[in-house]
Each structure stands twice: as structure tokens, then as C-alpha cells.
């Protein structure tokens, strides 16, 4: 069990860092926003492994759900400006 959760932590950590680098360097803005949402989603799984279910729920509902939608609302309004 312990080795399993450590292995899962390592996988999640690598996935988070990869998604973060993609969010910073990616060419297209929608993909960058989705990658940032993915960082939040992996973070919420990691919070669950760190025995913090309250924080995991908050991060999943607010950090990864609502924030991504806020970004897409604005992205829909500024069409054409994303490459500027």
C-alpha cells in the first residue's frame, strides 16, 4: 500500500510538472488553459493522497472546475486576440 501510494505520487508529480510546462510553453491558448486545469485536477488527487479530503474537494470543484470555465468565458469574448 505504501509503495503503491508513493509510486502514484511520483506519477502524479511528473504529470503535474509536464502539464505545467505545457501550459507555459504551449502554442495554443485553449490548450494552455486546459493544461492549467489539468494541473489543478492532478493536485486535487494528490491532496487526497496527502489525507486532506476537504482540500481535495475544494480544489476539484473550484480550482479546476470554475477557474477553467472563467478562462473560457473570457477567451470566447476576446476571439482573435489570443495570438497578440
Amino acid at each position: 500500500m505504501t509503495t503503491f501510494s508513493v509510486a502514484l505520487t511520483v506519477v502524479l508529480a511528473i504529470a503535474m510538472l509536464g502539464a505545467a510546462v505545457l501550459a507555459i510553453t504551449g502554442r495554443s491558448l485553449p490548450i494552455a488553459i486546459l493544461a492549467a486545469g489539468l494541473v489543478s485536477l492532478f493536485a486535487s488527487v494528490l491532496f487526497l493522497l496527502l489525507a486532506s479530503p476537504d482540500v481535495a474537494m475544494t480544489e476539484a470543484a473550484i480550482g479546476s472546475g470554475l477557474t477553467t470555465f472563467l478562462f473560457f468565458f473570457i477567451l470566447g469574448r476576446v476571439r482573435g486576440g489570443e495570438n497578440g
Partner: peptide
Amino acid sequence: NLMRMIVGFTIADSGVN
């Protein structure tokens, strides 16, 4: 790009948490 700067801030936010 302003939106990309905001994306960077949210990632730093997740890191602090």
C-alpha cells in the same frame, strides 16, 4: 499575452497550496 500571464499565476497558486 495577458491571458497566458494569468495562467502562470494560477499554476503558481496551485504550487503554493
